[in-house]
Computed example of a mutant assay.
Amino acid sequence: MACASTATERSEPQLRLLILGLGYTASRLAARLRDHGWRVAGTTRDGREGSIAFADTERVRFEIREATHILSSVPPEGEADPVLAAHGDALMRSGVWLGYLSSTGVYGDSGGGWVDESAPTGTGRRTARAAADAAWLALPNAHVFRLPGIYGPGRSPLDRVREGRAQRVDAGGQVFSRIHVDDIVEGLVRGLQGPAGAYNLADDLPAPQSDVIACACRLLGLPVPPLVPLAQADLSPAARAFYSENRRVANGKAKRLLGLTLRYPDYRFGLRALSATTSPASASSAPAAASADQR
């Protein structure tokens, strides 16, 4: 972890991170870097809990000018990226590290095949996300991190099972990729000194949603629910659309160029660790993991 430890253990005051969109994942990154002496500022929609309101343009512009590193986790609104629409010109200054939390949904459907960062984007249902992904990649020194389903403390299949909201969907061989939030943070930390470009951050084992729910039930000592055919499943339109795409996300580039080693190489390791904690349950997105739009 030579690169990562160098980035996090330095305590020089000039290391200033601005996070645009202080959500689930980005907040964990902020906490880690603050513990190592970084000055971290972040925005939210309403400026809650000491954050900066995104609409406070003057303050946001000040933080952009002062930052050495800027990370956006703000998803598109309609067809536009709110950060680029409001501050794209200010992000063009040279020397600053730029990061963007994107989605592996930019790849669309691969029929269950593996996709890496060389795969085409913009062919799936997330066209606005793909456009934002490409726009961020075009900026100087930009690092785009493409995320699959996100799970972690308070936001995992275990919570859905505990709350009685879990169902196992028989989607005819569909698999999806996921990653524990702590492994995302590790990838971001390593990316602070990594080369610019796009990186998939995913674990090593894409798997059917039904297998993940079954694992969570067994860890909790609860009955495994029967499989429900996709056509009969009680799903929101967004969740049902999720099952229209089938892909396996490759993570080799992050391992090679960033030196990323996964603490939780597949969902079984991650869920086992979470089941041993007492984190309170909270809502998670279907199916069984938070989407990259809820970072």
Rank of each mutant, 00 (worst) to 15 (best):
V224T: 15
F176P: 01
R165A: 13
A207H: 10
V181R: 01
P208F: 11
D234G: 03
V189W: 02
E186I: 02
V228L: 09
V212M: 15
I213K: 02
N200Y: 04
A207Y: 06
Q193M: 14
G164S: 13
G197H: 11
L192V: 10
D211E: 15
A207M: 06
H180K: 08
V169H: 04
P206M: 08
L230R: 05
L188C: 04
V169I: 15
A233R: 03
R178H: 04
P208W: 14
I184C: 02
G194C: 07
Q174M: 14
R218I: 10
N200H: 15
I184L: 03
G164W: 01
H180T: 01
R218N: 09
A216E: 13
E186P: 00
Q167T: 13
G197W: 11
Q193A: 15
I184H: 06
H180I: 02
A214Q: 12
D203N: 04
P226Q: 10
C215M: 12
V228P: 05
A216S: 09
V228R: 07
L201N: 02
A231V: 12
P223R: 12
L192P: 07
Y199H: 07
S177A: 15
A171P: 03
I213C: 12
P225H: 12
Y199F: 12
I213Q: 00
L205Y: 06
D183K: 05
L205M: 14
G173P: 05
L230N: 04
I184T: 03
R165P: 00
A198M: 02
V181W: 00
P195Q: 08
L192I: 12
P229C: 05
G194H: 06
L222P: 02
G197L: 09
P226N: 06
G187K: 02
D182M: 07
V212R: 05
P226D: 12
L227P: 08
N200P: 05
G172I: 13
G164H: 05
R178F: 00
L230Q: 02
Q232F: 10
L220Q: 14
R190Y: 01
A166C: 10
A202Y: 03
R218W: 13
L192K: 03
P206K: 06
G197D: 08
D183T: 04
S177E: 03
S177V: 00
L230S: 11
C217I: 10
V189M: 07
L205P: 04
Q232V: 09
Q167F: 09
G172F: 13
Q232L: 15
Q174S: 08
G194D: 00
H180F: 01
P223E: 11
G187Y: 07
S177Q: 00
D182L: 13
A231S: 15
E186A: 14
F176K: 03
G221V: 13
R168A: 07
L219R: 10
D211M: 14
C217M: 14
C215W: 01
V212N: 01
P195N: 11
D234M: 05
G197Q: 04
L220C: 13
Y199G: 06
A166M: 11
D182F: 04
A216Y: 14
I184F: 11
P225Y: 08
Y199R: 06
V185D: 01
Q174A: 14
N200G: 10
R168F: 08
R165T: 09
P223Q: 10
A196H: 10
P206F: 06
G221S: 08
A214E: 10
A166N: 08
L219D: 12
A233K: 08
R168Y: 07
G173N: 09
D182K: 05
D183L: 02
V212G: 02
A216G: 15
G173K: 08
Q193Y: 02
P229D: 04
V189Q: 04
